[in-house]
């Protein structure tokens, strides 16, 4: 089994997000980047499949902000065998269609049996790379997947719907699968192992093709959402806040 996992670095939404001076994107100098949470799940799922069925896991990403190495090293420490990145004179934001084309070109050359992506990332508005990759590579795609096993050139996947309902599909390989959650929580990689990867690992590089067209989706304005209402904020220290919450609940007959 030749498994490729596309992984991505995204702004951490736990932090305060600042808009850039043009008002069309985040100010990337002011945010921390972290691995997309669903990509961690995809890496774990890939390693689980490798452990069950044998093979090799390659992680690959478009190095949009030139800080992808750390993420690739972490993936290697978690059990990936090879890592690659797509590099060039890249100026964010780069739309998903363009990134998907670059990834498709590189991944196609790796002749994978299975391509995993995260189900989605929080940072872009023009859809998900997984189905786009599948479309460019002319492979089947199933997303929102929480379970995956492989035998005889077929993957059996569980796709989540609402309300805890799942559908089971059989998918001819090669295929692209968008992972929501791995069958087990992602394993932990000790810092020492990540450091060791940073010292010893070879990252293969692919040059981004600058002639690939864009998706025609330009953001003309980005701002914090205007909402119809806002919570009434309870002032005071934790003691006082706890007191107030209990009071409010008692008044409403909820305690």
């Amino acid at each position: 089994m030749n498994i490729v996992v596309a992984i991505k670095h995204v702004p951490s939404t736990a932090d305060e997000l600042e808009i850039n001076d043009e008002g069309v994107n985040l100010d990337f100098d002011e945010v921390d980047f972290t691995i997309n949470e669903f990509d961690e799940q995809a890496i774990e799922q890939a390693v689980l499949v490798k452990e069950a069925s044998g093979g090799e896991v390659t992680v690959i990403g478009v190095d949009v902000i030139e800080e992808l190495d750390g993420v690739l090293h972490t993936a290697l420490a978690k059990g990936a065998d090879k890592a690659a990145k797509i590099v060039g004179d890249l100026e964010p934001p780069i739309d998903s269609h363009t990134q998907a084309r670059w990834l498709a070109d590189a991944i196609g050359g790796l002749t994978p049996d299975l391509v995993l992506t995260g189900v989605q990332a929080v940072d872009d508005l023009d859809g998900q790379i997984g189905p786009m990759l599948a479309a460019y590579l002319d492979l089947p795609y199933v997303g929102v997947v929480t379970g995956l096993s492989v035998s005889d050139g077929t993957a059996t996947v569980h796709k989540e719907y609402a309300g805890g309902v799942m559908a089971e599909f059989e998918v001819n390989l090669p295929a692209v699968v968008g992972v929501q959650a791995a069958e087990k929580p992602p394993r932990y990689a000790p810092i020492s192992k990540i450091r060791q990867m940073a010292k010893s690992a070879d990252l293969e590089e692919y040059e981004a093709d600058e002639n690939v067209g864009d998706s025609g989706c330009e953001i003309r304005k980005m701002a914090k959402p205007v909402s119809a209402g806002h919570a009434e904020m309870l002032e005071g220290d934790a003691e006082e806040v706890a007191e107030k919450i209990i009071e409010i609940l008692e008044e409403r007959g909820l305690l």
């Binding site: 702004p11 939404t13 929080v122 508005l125 980005m222 701002a223 914090k224 959402p225």
Partner: peptide, 10 residues
């Protein structure tokens, strides 16, 4: 986008 923290118009 960004987990509901931003609204992008296009």
């Amino acid at each position: 986008i960004y987990g509901g923290k931003m609204a992008a118009e296009c």
